[in-house]
């Protein structure tokens, strides 16, 4: 089954999926999604950039009830709570995203996170519609 992003130009699907944002050539500010003016310095010279795939969790919650559909595209009949948080991408910005972890005991500010694809539903052509999320990076400690 082929995968398609929930909206083009937000999320690039590839071997290493990444978010697409803009960077201000004047002051270096990053924004997401893309826009043509800088909200910090008001310049209008913005370039398209791939955003970092790893960052740290800045804050989080758990979505405990099914969002209203529309606009939600995910399954509301068999709803499972999902995590939501802001992930701080170094030197770029904090991006809001779904989290693959929904257990409050296993979420904490500062933990390492990496971008993953999160399936939402299937379109009329049988493609899997995906959005983005972040999952905890497995700690490489063996002790």
């Amino acid at each position: 089954m082929a995968q398609v992003p929930v909206v083009e130009d937000i999320l690039e699907l590839s071997d290493e999926p990444h978010l697409v944002g803009s960077r201000c050539r004047s002051c270096g500010t990053h924004v997401f999604p893309r826009q043509d003016g800088c909200p910090r310095c008001t310049a209008t010279d913005m370039e398209r950039v791939a955003l970092a795939r790893r960052g740290t969790l800045w804050t989080w919650t758990v979505q405990g009830f099914a969002p209203k559909a529309p606009p939600y595209l995910g399954d509301t009949e068999h709803f499972e709570p999902f995590g939501v948080g802001y992930v701080e991408l170094p030197h770029e910005l904090k991006v809001e995203a779904r989290l693959t972890e929904a257990d409050p005991e296993r979420l904490h500010v500062g933990m390492e996170m990496e971008l993953v694809l999160v399936p939402l539903s299937t379109d009329d052509d049988g493609n899997e519609i995906v959005t983005f999320g972040f999952q905890p990076v497995e700690e490489e400690r063996s002790s």
Binding site: V7, P67, P70, E96
Partner: peptide
């Protein structure tokens, strides 16, 4: 509406 579609 990717934001609403994604549950955010």
């Amino acid at each position: 509406d990717w934001y609403g579609a994604s549950g955010l």
